[in-house]
Design a protein around this nucleic acid. Sequence first.
RNA 1: GCGGGAGUGGUGUAACGGCAGCCACGCCAGACUUAGGAUCUGGUGCCUUCGGGCGUGCGGGUUCGACUCCCGCCUCCCGCACCA
Length: 956
Amino acid sequence: MPPHRYTPALAQRIELAWQDRWAAEGTFHTPNPVGRLSAGFERVADRPKYFAMDMFPYPSGAGLHVGHPLGYLGTDVTSRFRRMDGDNVLHPMGYDAFGLPAEQYAVQTGQHPRITTEANIAAIRAQLRRLGVDHDDRRSFATIDPAYYKWTQWIFLQIFGSWFDADAGRARRIEELVAELDAGTREPGEGTNPYDRPWAVLGAAERGVVVDAHRLAYLHEAPVNWCPGLGTVLSNEEVTPDGRSERGNFPVFRRPLKQWMMRITAYADRLLDDLDRLDWSDSLKLMQRNWIGRSTGARIRFAAGAVGRPGGAAETIEVFTTRPDTLFGATYMVLAPEHPLVEALTADAWPEGADPRWTGGLATPAEAVRAYQRQASRRSELDRQDAGREKTGVWLGVTAVNPVDGRELPVFIADYVLTGYGTGAIMAVPGEDQRDWDFARAFGLGIVPTVERPAGFDDSSGAYTGPGRMINSSNEEISLDGLDKATAIATVTDWLVRRGAGEATTTYKLRDWLFSRQRYWGEPFPIVYDEHDRPVAVPESLLPVLLPEVDDYSPKTFSDDDADSAPEPPLSRATEWTTVELDLGDGVQKYRRETNTMPNWAGSCWYYLRYLDPGDDTQMVDPELERYWMGPRGEGDVGGVDLYVGGVEHAVLHLLYARFWHKVLHDLGYVSSEEPFRRLVNQGYISAYAYTDERGFYVPAADVEEKDGRFFYEGEPVNREYGKIGKSLKNMVTPDEMIGAYGADTFRVYEMSTGPLEQSRPWETKAVVGSQRLLQRIWRVVVDEQTGAVRASDAEPAEETLRALHKAIDGVRDGYATLRFNIAIARITELTNHLTQVHGADTPVSRAVAEPLVLLVAPLAPHLAEELWSRLGHDESTAWTPFPQADERWLVEDTVQVAVQVNGKVRSQVTVPAGADAAALEAAARADEKIAGYLEGATIRRVVAVPGRLVNFVLG
RNA sequence: GCGGGAGUGGUGUAACGGCAGCCACGCCAGACUUAGGAUCUGGUGCCUUCGGGCGUGCGGGUUCGACUCCCGCCUCCCGCACCA
């Protein structure tokens, strides 16, 4: 072994030394334009800014595997490249540390969550440092730091202290609402005034209730997702489609509870519309669009209940439909089983001769309704799916009246109508809706077609949902017959408005965000309750409201399926803390603290802003810093982080919540940007093979041998499966192991070489050696393996070598710029292989080529590059050395080889001058012996000659 | 069911509508070695009668020319899923 070979041991020595030096010299300290972190800004003042960021890690106890750093390395390579290429780059890293897993881990280990969490953070920080990432460590923080969550609480107070002005389409301060209400220029918004009297005559306490109902953060008693197994309520986004908790997979039940909500629905339109202005993948935008779920249609009111219910008062059923044009085809109505009108509408007795299918076989409507409601509430979401699309329901014993033709429509409850969407009630049009058709079929209800069917359509086979002219749709006042869908919708909606029976409207699938959790390990709310139990903001001067120490921070959990249990926040046990005496302007009073805590999404909603100066204890973020790092880049630009990399699993959780908070902060004037993340990239996942033996047990993947496409462990055949990496799958490979075996640079190059950043890929330890060989060859270009001396010569490089160099520069730049690091590595490899081949052991590579090569590889293998750069005699870090520019002169060849095709098949190659025109190309091609053979005696129908590309003879 | 994405050598992948398979792993051969799981060099899509033929999931289309664009299928992955 030559004494100065680039071995793993040498790589590690080099890496540790450079990591120390970077830390000591503050190489990656990014200067702000103003404030405490502005030292050295003159150096970068004329540079454009570039803010690159990862979704910060959650410091769980499980440790990192080789899949975790992929995204971090992607932003690292990018930030290093952009810095070398002349940007002022901000690349920070922090830790998202409140939340369920940390709390559960702490409960398991019997340690306070702060202790385990901080230990985990230290471990991850050390691992990241060992990978050589260029984070500015002065800007790091964790969401559990009081100096951080002080501002999380402060933002909550801003949200609590504002309301959404629907006319202006933005949030405004609550004081402005009160002023307008007092001035009489505004009345309370819809659904905010329970008193049936105008604002002017309301008492102080009543006014308080009305104001609170406007707030963007508000207390609300409503059915929420209660998870007894976790002992906490959850947001819609945290519940899986089959009705279980995303964390822990426990059953979740709908239960009315009074909880904090955030009025994210007020922002539905902006969250939806502004997606068009973001540089995100289409699939991710689509996920958000689907989650917000905007649909336009009409609300229509049906009088109901008087018929078949002697002496009963009429009620009004309001439905939402996207197809008001089909109103004439409504033949019955359905309420969700939990609809508030169900009780009032239920008839005392079945009318004479009631269809037994409609009554559930029970003696009275009340019995049937109660039985069906019980059945519906018992059934979890999963059961509902298992039951397939078979429609069930019972009749209430009453009818409603179709406003358009006076026809009586029987009113049912059925679980295919959901409480949470639209108004929780529908008009059923079996002719044009498949679900209604299914129900009508099962219950023997009529079908009235209102859209003209194509010839041969069979109404007994299903609903018709295609296009067509309206039919069967007229009364004395209007006729939709013959109209197309859009015109019919406009016509009937207009008529409904004039009759006061409905109006055009928009609904969303998005629900308000359930914001409280019955957990210890989270941000306390900066809220206290007064003697009337009204929530009051804790004054800014008293922030942060510190999370108190308690003896028992474990949540009160229940048996998984104990749906009737009630949440009990751990903080309620901190009895000394829960009551507090404060002077909030009217003398010292006793207050009761809010004992819920915030969900773990709170801290990640705004952390990108805190990176700009985490040490600022006077404000959330300096507006000038926000403008510099996040501000719009011109008219119409949304601003935001320039590159945000993270997993796709946050498509509708973190990314929606953060956008919402950002828009509120924008409306209130705290940030100039309209969106937090201008460009978002979802990195792929790294998967691995796992192997099971005959009994189905996992065997160590590292010891499995392949023979002729089959796999063996200790001589016995095993099965291969492909998927996650994990300890229990016995296929865990850690970055530490790889760094120990090859060094961080090799690990970095390997991870980046296996595909574009967005691409998922398998891990293959045996392929890592290829990246090591590349780095060894680059090392040999600069360093003599026998003597350790620098080999580079001062000779002029050969023309051919210059062409190879500049072609590589061009390709490497493209690869870095487009996050296709595999391309950059392929071009670097080509250049290196070229140099290795042209220059044997005795002819050193020219410095004019070796130096750019070192700089090309610097973003990928920064330690190696620093070492070689320094040995080449440079004092400055590669990080602050300009990235090589390709010289056009060396990108164009003097002569080019072009393919010559005959009838589209390549038959020969000719070499022509680079500038040769079509005629010259054709002449050269005809002169070629092989081609001449093909052309002889043939009729040439056409000749296509593309300069620099090819010639194609089309023979007839 | 609806929506989105993807199908290229044994493997990961690459190709402004213009020579399919760059680069790497693996494999084969060789060099240097006491040795090789180190390093270096060469070869490696398939078939072949060595002329060539066939090849980018399948079938059509547009084009002088299609991995690339269009239409219809198939398969896989992801998201949503009784959303009125």
